[in-house]
Simulated scan of single mutants.
Amino acid sequence: MAQNYLPLFWEDDYCQIEIVPFENKEYILKTIGQISDLANNSRTGFGFTETFGRGQMPVSTFSEEIRTDYLEKLLTGFEFEKAKSINYDSHKILDCETGLTKAYGFSNFTVFFDTEDEFVKNIWLSISSIVSVRQCDLIKLALYDLGEECEMVLIDWNSLELFDLRDKIQIDKYLNSYWK
């Protein structure tokens, strides 16, 4: 049987849309301000003259001891497909069965996470245009459950926006930007 779901993971997208513990909220807001200031002060007509290294969150996802099997069960409960492999940087295939990086989702939305022992180390997303109401509803419910049960927030470092995953209105606001 041919595999239909082969998510693409670009190294530059690692933790760019990140799900982290709520306790990091103040740190994230402070970092957003620092990034905005640096961007405004280093902007040129061709990009930026400075870069910003974000560093580690004060409270790591790993420290929350979210079990890999818990997250897998949550995602498959909302019909997210388990990827057997990941297309890494468009030239290498990672094995999700034996490797530390896992992927669950749909062709247009993937939850990636890396693991250490039986725990989740980091969680990040890859999102393209959402065109199915049913998939959008499943994504919203999965994100809300993750927010409620594990007290998580979503930080989109690309847009410098923070969303509390315990708040369905904030989840709607975030996902609405991906509707076609």
Rank of each mutant, 00 (worst) to 15 (best):
Thr98His: 12
Ser63Asp: 13
Gly55Val: 05
Phe119Leu: 08
Thr49Leu: 14
Glu64Asn: 10
Met152Cys: 15
Glu11Asn: 13
Lys73Asn: 13
Ile123Val: 15
Phe113Pro: 01
Glu26Thr: 12
Asp156Thr: 09
Ser128Ala: 10
Phe163Ile: 08
Thr115Asn: 06
Lys30Ala: 09
Gln16Thr: 12
Phe78Trp: 14
Thr31Asp: 05
Gly47Arg: 03
Tyr178Ile: 03
Thr31Gly: 01
Ile139Lys: 00
Ser85Thr: 13
Ile155Lys: 00
Leu154His: 04
Ser42Leu: 11
Asn122Lys: 07
Glu97Ala: 13
Asn4Thr: 11
Asp172Gln: 13
Glu18Ala: 13
Gly105Phe: 00
Val20Gly: 00
Tyr104Val: 03
Val20Phe: 00
Ile17Leu: 10
Asp13Trp: 09
Lys30Ser: 11
Leu162Met: 11
Lys82Leu: 08
Phe22Glu: 11
His91Ser: 15
Asn122His: 14
Val120Asn: 00
Phe113Gln: 03
Glu161Met: 15
Gln3Tyr: 14
Ser60Gln: 04
Asp137Arg: 06
Thr68Leu: 12
Ile123Cys: 06
Gln3Lys: 14
Glu97Met: 10
Glu79Ala: 09
Gly77Trp: 07
Phe62Cys: 05
Phe9Ala: 08
Glu161Ile: 11
Phe9Gly: 01
Arg43Val: 14
Asp37Gly: 06
Phe48Pro: 04
Thr98Pro: 03
Gly77Ile: 08
Ser107Arg: 02
Arg67Ser: 09
